[in-house]
Simulated assay, not measured.
Amino acid sequence: MKQDTMMGFLAQLQANNSLDWMHEHKKEQQAAAAGFEALVQALAGELALHDAGVAGLKARDLIFRLNRDTRFSSDKSPYKAAFRAHIGPAGRMPIPVGYYLHLEPGNVFLGGGLYAAMFPGATARIREELAENGAEFLQIVQEPFFKKNFELVGEKLKKVPQGFDPALPQSEYLKYKSWALEYHLPDEAVADRDAFLRQAADAFLRMRPFNDYLNRALEGYKLPERPGKG
């Protein structure tokens, strides 16, 4: 499937987000999903050449569903009009951190780091690492390509949390509850599959020192079990 056809399906879904429309366009959905799965598998394979932590992953274990959980949302649209995947050591799980691919018309980006402010134990571990090894973190985020291209996003406190020295050079980063990166691209970047794969793999690998830093802080951390499990 051509990449522009894949994005074209998502654009149509944005404009026609309903169960009936999806049922009527099931073949197009299946073709677009297969194209995205092939893209994720190729990207995972390229990354595995340089990052053994993501070797041997299967794309089907990395991709998020289009279906939305609307039970607690005022937006009752049944689908998220985006193809999304997390290429990480634990597949879709946010920890250990990995590489996040988000294809959505008008919002194409590559992500890294931790998108998980809801896990205070993980936040605490990273803050401790920052307090102890802030110089290394600053060197990573101040690298020229990183500083120019990657945006650090996530929930953030107004003040340095209690127990940490606000005079530390890295104090601004201690305010974060979640340390996530985004590298935005125009929709047109997706059209050429080979060029997009090269660009995505290069950007992701430039994120790797950031990911490695967070994963070192999170080593041994266990995500809380969902209610009713165990």
Rank of each mutant, 00 (worst) to 15 (best):
3 Q>E: 01
6 M>L: 11
8 G>I: 00
9 F>T: 02
10 L>D: 00
17 N>M: 12
18 S>R: 10
26 K>P: 08
27 K>N: 13
36 F>E: 04
36 F>R: 00
40 V>E: 01
45 G>Q: 04
48 A>E: 04
48 A>R: 00
54 V>P: 10
54 V>H: 12
56 G>T: 04
57 L>N: 11
58 K>W: 04
61 D>E: 01
66 L>G: 12
67 N>F: 02
74 S>Y: 09
75 D>N: 08
76 K>I: 09
81 A>C: 13
82 A>S: 10
89 P>D: 08
89 P>K: 02
89 P>H: 07
96 P>E: 00
99 Y>D: 07
100 Y>P: 01
101 L>A: 05
108 V>R: 04
108 V>A: 10
109 F>Q: 03
113 G>H: 04
114 L>G: 15
115 Y>S: 13
118 M>K: 11
119 F>V: 14
120 P>S: 12
125 R>M: 06
126 I>F: 06
128 E>C: 08
129 E>A: 14
129 E>V: 06
130 L>H: 09
131 A>G: 06
132 E>S: 14
132 E>H: 13
133 N>T: 08
137 F>Q: 04
138 L>V: 11
139 Q>M: 09
140 I>H: 03
140 I>A: 06
141 V>A: 02
142 Q>Y: 03
143 E>I: 09
144 P>L: 04
145 F>M: 07
147 K>E: 02
149 N>M: 09
154 G>W: 05
155 E>P: 00
157 L>P: 07
158 K>I: 13
161 P>Y: 13
161 P>A: 03
162 Q>N: 14
163 G>D: 05
163 G>I: 06
164 F>Q: 02
165 D>A: 07
172 E>A: 13
178 S>E: 05
178 S>N: 10
180 A>N: 13
183 Y>T: 07
186 P>Q: 12
189 A>W: 14
193 R>M: 06
195 A>L: 10
196 F>S: 05
198 R>D: 14
199 Q>G: 11
199 Q>D: 14
201 A>M: 07
201 A>L: 08
202 D>P: 04
204 F>W: 13
217 A>E: 06
223 L>I: 11
230 G>I: 01
